[in-house]
């Protein structure tokens, strides 16, 4: 807190001054300290400081509550200080109208009286987090399983149900839910887990999952075009596969005609043989992915006889795909938002 306050004071405009001190009696017990800022004309603002070693996204709501529940005639301000504030947390604090500062020099102080705005950038990653302590992520199979379950079903979960449906282990399910809660992406109440904002969960997952990087992909050419492969896929129901990306997205939100088809399959060699694919030196129109996790096949569906991946899987594959894919992802996500009942069970 002291270092963060020192940085704020240092960042003030010339002639301005600041001081960190213990809170007065009426604020004592509720706040860790107060920061007093004086303008050159002598006008002073006393801002309560909320200091924590680590601030997570989910904490922001509590700060906002504290400010808005006040019955004082002038709404008190609040400055949140921490050793390091991650970008997502800074964004949430800003959106909540709060000031913030961390010990690396990330600062945003906004006062209406005396009028003041100070903004500065510090570190973009936590310098105190050693390499041996990886940040929580949504990498890995359990995260994929839990995320897909939370997104695909619209319900309040008990942990037991979530373990059962996602088919992740109990320990892993807890870890993933803890992480999502820290990120403010799920709520927990009375032992239930609720994922209201499936869209943000998918976006967060796309940071750690990608069709091309997570899975083993190979490029092929189907000389008679994508439709010829889909026709053959209809005739090979015994082959485990799921079409994703542009071709599958057309089921819900048709975009431009696809230049290439991306298909998950358990057996690349069998698919190549059954679907008449040739290795592509260039001009590939088929990308086969041997999935790292089986979850890509979960809740897939038959569309006109062709097996396509679930909408949530298709969306994340497009978000992280090449060329026009991200644009197509937005189109699909738009459809998914407008038609939640059509795909979310």
């Amino acid at each position: 807190m002291r270092e963060a306050a020192r940085r704020v004071i240092k960042a003030l405009p010339p002639e301005w001054s600041g001081e960190l001190s213990s809170p007065r009696a009426e604020l004592r017990g509720r706040n860790d300290a107060v920061l007093t800022i004086r303008s050159p004309s002598g006008a002073a603002a006393t801002i309560p400081v909320e200091a924590k070693r680590i601030v997570e996204s989910r904490d922001v709501a509590a700060f906002t509550d504290r400010v808005s529940s006040s019955d004082r005639p002038i709404r008190p301000h609040l400055i949140v200080m921490a050793r390091y504030l991650p970008g997502t947390v800074r964004e949430r604090l800003t959106n909540a109208g709060l000031s913030w500062a961390d010990a690396t020099g990330n600062i945003r102080v906004s006062l209406s009286w005396p009028g003041l705005f100070v903004f500065d950038r510090g570190a973009d990653s936590d310098p105190w987090r050693g390499p041996g302590r990886p940040k929580g992520t949504l990498k890995g199979e359990p995260a994929a399983k839990v995320v897909r379950a939370l997104v695909d079903f619209d319900r309040e979960w008990s942990m037991r149900q979530l373990v059962e449906v996602s088919r992740a282990s109990t320990g892993a399910t807890y870890r993933v839910v803890d992480f999502l809660e820290e990120e403010g992406l799920v709520e927990r109440a009375d032992g239930r887990v609720i994922a209201r904002d499936w869209l943000q969960i998918l976006r967060r997952w796309s940071v750690d999952y990608s069709f091309a990087l997570t899975n083993l992909t190979t490029k092929w050419i189907a000389p008679r075009g994508i439709d010829s492969v889909l026709a053959r896929a209809r005739e090979t129901p015994d082959l485990r596969y799921a079409v994703t990306s542009t071709v599958a997205a057309a089921r819900w939100a048709p975009w431009a005609p696809p230049r290439s088809a991306m298909i998950y399959t358990e057996s690349v060699s069998l698919a190549v043989e059954k679907w008449g694919l040739r290795p592509a030196e260039s001009g590939a129109n088929i990308v086969l992915a041997q999935p790292k996790y089986d979850v890509v096949f979960e809740r897939s569906q038959l569309w006109d006889g062709v097996r396509i991946a679930a909408a949530s899987q298709v969306a994340v594959d497009l978000m992280t795909g090449p060329g026009r894919n991200p644009g197509e992802a937005e189109e699909l996500l738009g459809w998914m938002s407008r038609n939640e009942h059509d795909w979310r069970r």
């Binding site: 050419i221 000389p223 008679r224 230049r259 040739r278 592509a280 260039s282 001009g283 590939a284 129109n285």
Partner: peptide, 16 residues
Amino acid sequence: GDPDFVSQSVSILADE
């Protein structure tokens, strides 16, 4: 369209 794809494809189909 996709010139690379067409060149590859027509050659493969001719060979077949």
